[in-house]
Lab assay of single mutants.
Amino acid sequence: MAMNGTITTWFKDKGFGFIKDENGDNRYFHVIKVANPDLIKKDAAVTFEPTTNNKGLSAYAVKVVPL
């Protein structure tokens, strides 16, 4: 089920960042999981599918909501 969130941290040079989800949890995401990576920036609103990996909470099918 899709969730909403906000990008809180973005490491462009490393290709990953973190999203604060609607429950207040931080989720890892990688640029290859983003549909529109050219719009990635700190504080951008996103929708995504929540999941977990071996390191904890993460996100896939991430879409940055255009302003």
Rank of each mutant, 00 (worst) to 15 (best):
M1L: 12
M1N: 13
M1H: 13
A2G: 10
A2H: 12
M3E: 02
M3C: 07
M3V: 06
M3K: 06
N4V: 11
N4L: 10
N4R: 14
N4K: 14
N4G: 09
G5C: 03
G5N: 01
G5S: 02
G5L: 03
T6G: 02
I7N: 00
I7E: 00
T8S: 09
T8E: 08
T8M: 10
T8I: 14
T8C: 10
T9L: 14
T9S: 14
T9D: 09
T9R: 14
T9G: 09
W10A: 01
W10F: 11
W10T: 00
F11C: 09
F11S: 05
K12G: 09
K12E: 10
D13P: 06
D13F: 10
D13G: 09
D13K: 12
K14I: 05
K14C: 09
G15H: 07
G15V: 03
G15Q: 08
F16Q: 02
F16G: 01
F16S: 03
F16I: 05
G17M: 02
G17D: 00
F18P: 00
F18G: 01
F18S: 04
F18W: 10
F18Q: 03
F18Y: 10
I19W: 02
I19N: 00
I19R: 00
I19C: 02
I19K: 00
I19D: 00
K20P: 00
K20C: 13
K20S: 07
D21C: 03
E22D: 07
E22K: 06
E22Q: 11
E22S: 10
N23V: 07
N23W: 08
N23R: 10
N23P: 01
N23M: 10
G24A: 04
G24K: 04
G24P: 01
G24S: 05
G24Y: 04
D25Q: 11
D25R: 08
N26L: 15
N26D: 10
N26V: 14
N26H: 12
N26F: 15
R27K: 00
R27I: 04
R27S: 01
Y28H: 06
F29Q: 00
F29V: 04
F29I: 03
H30C: 10
H30D: 11
H30P: 05
H30F: 07
H30L: 08
H30V: 08
H30A: 08
H30S: 13
H30E: 11
V31Q: 09
V31P: 03
V31A: 08
V31M: 09
V31F: 09
I32E: 14
I32R: 15
I32H: 15
I32L: 15
I32F: 14
K33D: 15
K33P: 03
K33V: 15
V34Q: 03
V34A: 06
V34D: 04
V34P: 03
V34C: 11
V34F: 05
A35I: 15
A35M: 15
N36W: 05
N36R: 05
N36S: 05
N36Q: 06
N36I: 04
N36A: 04
P37I: 06
P37M: 05
P37V: 06
P37S: 06
D38P: 07
D38N: 11
D38M: 10
D38C: 13
D38G: 11
D38S: 11
L39I: 07
L39T: 06
L39Q: 14
L39H: 10
I40L: 13
I40A: 04
I40Q: 01
I40W: 04
I40F: 05
K41V: 10
K41D: 06
K41C: 11
K41E: 10
K42W: 06
K42C: 09
K42F: 06
K42G: 04
K42A: 08
K42T: 09
D43V: 03
D43Y: 15
A44Y: 04
A44K: 05
A45G: 07
A45L: 13
A45C: 12
A45I: 11
A45E: 08
V46C: 09
V46K: 01
V46T: 02
T47F: 07
T47R: 09
T47Q: 09
T47I: 12
T47W: 07
T47D: 03
F48K: 00
F48A: 00
F48T: 00
F48Q: 00
E49P: 01
E49S: 14
E49G: 06
P50F: 04
P50V: 04
P50E: 03
P50Q: 04
P50H: 04
P50A: 07
T51K: 11
T51H: 14
T52K: 13
T52N: 10
N53D: 09
N53H: 09
N54Y: 11
N54G: 12
N54T: 12
K55E: 07
K55F: 14
G56P: 04
G56R: 12
G56N: 06
L57S: 04
L57Y: 06
L57V: 03
S58K: 05
S58E: 10
S58G: 11
S58M: 10
S58I: 08
S58C: 11
A59G: 03
A59T: 07
A59F: 03
A59L: 03
A59Q: 02
A59C: 13
Y60L: 13
Y60D: 15
Y60A: 14
Y60K: 15
A61P: 02
A61K: 13
V62N: 01
V62T: 01
V62S: 02
V62F: 02
K63Y: 13
K63M: 12
K63L: 11
V64L: 05
V64S: 02
V64T: 03
V64G: 02
V64N: 01
V64I: 11
V64P: 03
V65S: 08
V65R: 08
V65I: 13
V65F: 10
V65P: 02
V65Y: 10
P66W: 09
P66M: 11
L67C: 13
L67D: 13
L67K: 12
L67T: 13
